[in-house]
Design a protein around this nucleic acid. Structure first.
Lengths: 223, 223
DNA sequence: GCAATTTGATAACCGAGGGTCACTGAACTT
DNA sequence: AAGTTCAGTGACCCTCGGTTATCAAATTGC
């Protein structure tokens, strides 16, 4: 059986919005390192979709390997365990989240407006079909030791929101008496909770949900 | 090996606060049904502690069985699968939560005060060591089909909070313009989020955390 | 009291799936 | 051309959830 790992698969526009993979396609003569890294990311991308839509414990390494046209053992060249593979998926997901929030917050409005934009982007990104189960259903599997980079990203997000809260106090668009630490806790809590209860079919689109929850979560903090 | 399932184990006061098991000890000549039910609950109690403190996927049925002094196969007289056992643990946990919140909300103050008491009780209960992983780490494993009763309890809690929010609008202790549905979402989101990031050693006790988060989550809703 | 039956537990086993390892063949190096 | 590196293979092991045949004790019927 010929390995398909060397093939650059077409990117599904629905699930791959803002995916960075497409931007790093091979140019001319790929080095061994480049090829290896591309394959690794292809594995992670495949695993992310499967974990995200089917749930971690319902996906076998065999299934991932088959889908990629290789054997299970081959995967172990790119990850040290199934949990490690999940970790790499988390990193990918975290990067997406950070990117989305960063972009949304880069606007020019008041801090309150940019905070709202960032929060909405956070929620919408989290509700992407292939992020769904990844966040709400398998965060658990992140075992100690491995999870450093994930926690780093989480902290990074937390800091981004806290900074924006502080900026809001400074520019007067948010109440001066709010505690950024506690407020970011409540805000992110509300946002993350959406990922738990939201299921397609509730009638509302992720974008609508994002806007509604954002409005509600920030209501008490506006100046 | 003699079965220890017939022994009523002493209740650890730390983890068994409000546990209903102690109230149903056998009286005189236990019937077969009573004995069976007692054993079932003893299994669930043991599993709850282990799942809660070690994490679902790190606990083998073998380990639970050994701790109870029986074989793994014996457990299958009381549950149909490992996941079903987890479900029963969730029910136990949910009952604890509902009890705690109900009791806390039964006071005589304003609706806002009772809401705060209920929310704090919710958080504190959730932070019990043996509830920790159960909530934040294994909610995922609840697979469709089985999970009806758990969702019922969750709905029940949601309704309790929504009712109290409505009561607060009526008695004027909460802002008249709040949307109970969205508000309960944000409030419970913030509360549940605590279970994710809280780890012993942060210096603050569950009670302090509960009070702080409660204050913050309700701040925007007070009249 | 003594068979017949029901119940709860056991030991032995099965199969899925995560993880390992000796080896192979192709690509790169010299 | 010979040696070296390395991704990938196939066969294998082990853990653990789940099943089944069987047995002993308690319960019931006569």
């Amino acid at each position: 059986m010929e390995s398909q790992l060397t093939t650059i698969r077409s990117i599904d526009p629905e699930t791959a919005v803002n995916d960075t993979l497409a931007m790093t396609e091979l140019s001319g003569f790929p080095t061994r390192k480049q090829l290896r890294d591309l394959k690794r990311r292809e594995i992670v991308r495949c695993a992310t979709v499967k974990f995200g839509t089917e749930g971690y414990e319902n996906v076998t390494l065999e299934a991932i390997a088959t889908e990629l046209g290789v054997t299970k053992a081959a995967l172990y060249n790119y990850c040290s365990s199934k949990n490690d593979l999940l970790m790499q998926c988390y990193e990918l997901g975290m990067d997406r989240l950070v990117d989305a929030v960063e972009t949304a917050m880069a606007g020019t409005g008041s801090a309150a407006e940019r905070l709202a934009a960032g929060l909405k982007a956070y929620i919408v990104t989290m509700l992407r079909p292939d992020m769904q189960y990844l966040w709400s259903y398998t965060r658990p599997m992140v075992t100690s030791g491995d999870k450093r980079s994930v926690l780093d990203s989480r902290d990074k997000l937390d800091v981004m929101f806290r900074n924006m809260l502080n900026a809001g106090i400074s520019d007067g668009s948010l109440r001066a008496d709010l505690d950024p630490k506690l407020a970011s806790l409540v805000i992110l809590g509300a946002a993350n909770w959406v990922g738990i209860w939201y299921r397609k079919g509730g009638g509302k689109s992720p974008s609508e949900i994002g806007a509604e929850v954002t409005g509600e979560a920030l209501r008490g903090y506006l100046a």
